[in-house]
Amino acid sequence: MEWVNAIVQGILLGGLYALFAAGLSLIFGVMRLVNIAHGDLIVAAAYLALVVVQVTGLHPLASAVIVVPLMAAFGYVMQRLLLNPTIGKDLLSPLLVTFGISVILQNGLLATFTADSRRLAAGGIETATLHVLPGLNIGYLPLLMFVAAIVIIYGLELVFSRTSLGRAFRATSDDPEIAQLMMLDRRHVFGMAMALSAAVVAIAGIFLAIRTSFDPASGPARLLFGFEAVIIGGLGNLWGTLAGGIVLGVAQTVGAQISPGWQILAGHLVFFLILAIRPRGLFPRMD
């Protein structure tokens, strides 16, 4: 039953990783940009939630009404000011600019909040569990995160397939030159993509803050988990990304079951294993 429990917890953890991954996957899909600061943005959102809860007394989950729009606005401005000037030139410039943003965010958080690890108390939701079977408990919070991941991915799919903004994203991704002739301002479209990504990042950050303790250096690991979920799932497929997150989550919890030191390592090794046997991921988009 221990192993069953580990697998179930891993599946639920996969929801959080899918949330880390969704924003990363979204901006890569629209503008072929890989944002190295993605994990640091998640951690920044976690700190923002912490501050919002302290200042307003809102429930951590309710802090989303402030954190999400603030992060989205930050994402939009960051894209317009720092990233748009680098898009379309070469691989190096956008990558290194996001790397610089990552360094600034990490050290900015360190200067503001010190290196102490923090956690966001959410009034008991983080410890409440559902006893399914003897030895198999499902926490309310992991369950909530998993459901939130499904809802958000479904929502993103809807935005992409049904809305004018989604058409603009796809058209700009397909053919950025001709998309301009559709009266689309590429700078704005990219800004909106980053804003949407940062909105998802905000939710991921709030969940991260409630689920585990975090510190200013927690970002890179989140970037790597999100990235691994994207690659395992297959590029350009958000449901595949959820599957990738689940595979990664299960690998980690099963690894931790073997030995605590193996938790993260097992996830990385499964990532490389899948890269070796299925380089395009488990569910690549048919092109």
Binding site: F28, R32, V34, L91, P220, L224, F227, F272, L275, A276
Partner: peptide
């Protein structure tokens, strides 16, 4: 293995490798 990752994703892949070494 790393070369299977295109462009910018190669960069992150190298980071995962470094983490594998560290752990």
């Amino acid at each position: 293995l790393l070369f299977r990752l295109q462009g910018a994703y190669f960069a992150i892949g190298t980071w995962v490798l470094a983490e594998v070494f560290r752990l």
